[in-house]
Design a binder for these strands. Sequence first.
DNA 1: TGTACATCAGTGAACGCGCGTTCACTGATGTAC
DNA 2: TGTACATCAGTGAACGCGCGTTCACTGATGTAC
Lengths: 215, 215
Amino acid sequence: MTETVRNPRERYRAQVRDEIKRHAWQQIASTGVTALSINAIAKEMGMSGPALYRYYAGRDELITALIRDAYRSLADAVRAAHGAGTTVVALAGVIRRWALSDPHRYLLIYGTPVPGYHAPEDITAISDEILAVLLQVCGGPADEAPRTPFDLVLGMNRQWAAALPAPTPAVHRALSFWTRVQGVLSLELAGHFTPMGIDAGLLLAEEVAELGSER
Amino acid sequence: MTETVRNPRERYRAQVRDEIKRHAWQQIASTGVTALSINAIAKEMGMSGPALYRYYAGRDELITALIRDAYRSLADAVRAAHGAGTTVVALAGVIRRWALSDPHRYLLIYGTPVPGYHAPEDITAISDEILAVLLQVCGGPADEAPRTPFDLVLGMNRQWAAALPAPTPAVHRALSFWTRVQGVLSLELAGHFTPMGIDAGLLLAEEVAELGSER
DNA sequence: TGTACATCAGTGAACGCGCGTTCACTGATGTAC
DNA sequence: TGTACATCAGTGAACGCGCGTTCACTGATGTAC
């Protein structure tokens, strides 16, 4: 999140950029992305509005930075879990806890798209990182034969997909894993479970239990 | 959507209320819920801003009406499909087509919650209608014994759940159906599939195929 | 070590905009006798 | 059938607010000799 820099002026810049983001998250947490206001952040920091333009070219660039950090954070969490050795059920739990720890951060990425906004290249790369881990936890691409009709589900227009010989059961399990996690979390975070008294954590575990690497 | 009324004045009122909603949906479709503006709608209709206050007490009441209509529309679509006899796969297709036909309508209900907004009672009732149909398509509550540990997933604090003797496999299948549909649709509508070339329709069919009534 | 200069963080005023909502009002539409 | 009255849709002005962004500027901080 923080870029490390020797130069004292650059160091200060990085600090302020971080503080701006902290306040931005705080604001998003209370009123949502759309209410995110440069002026409001500035006021909260005891600065005048235009001052922030020294640090971000405008509102869109700030939002981009927030989205990037959110993806980065999730990618790190998922990677760490995988590095420590994890199962599909445990990984789902990690993702869920990550989402619950800051619902608006999750929603910024996977919720209703910010109108008029389109993510730059490097962000989809981080998103691919996440999917790569899922793929490994769901069994990896090795020693698996392509299957039908799942082959049709996946086109081949992306590196991580193109790197595979063909869609495999593991790829499909990873995809199922991902959509099922999203399904439970999007409903849970939007509050659609609370009036029904559903244990979302347990439901999620049940949903992904069968998607392990089968080894 | 339109209330039928004899009285000519009331009739006119209902027409205008509908026209306001039509413009509201149009606006939501182009810029999202948060950009929804009473003044903008009025201008589009060739009226002054305050005129709309004759028809809706304020912005929140208008949004409530839109949300209610959205739920109503989905409930009708799902009911109609069930009435004509449907399978889990076909029903998932119906829901998906409903969502794709107006993504913002779907997102208004199941996307990121509108900050500060809370739905009135009668809306959760419509939501229950939908779930009731799902339950029937997934096998119905009849002649099924409770099972563990799924029993824990569902609490019993809601009518349609309380009406059941206990959580059954069918209830759990309905819940799985619902979350899996949400998972695929929320990712598809947010555009997370397009760069990967995934056939969301096929994926959805695969996801719910196993959740039929097993009769 | 001290001075001259360049860099750059932050200010305050301004621009133009749109928002939700209130209020007192005009004028048309329906209703009662 | 015609008149008197009540209802109510819609207007225009106004209030107070916040937004993103630009611009010319002050003053502090770092750099080069």
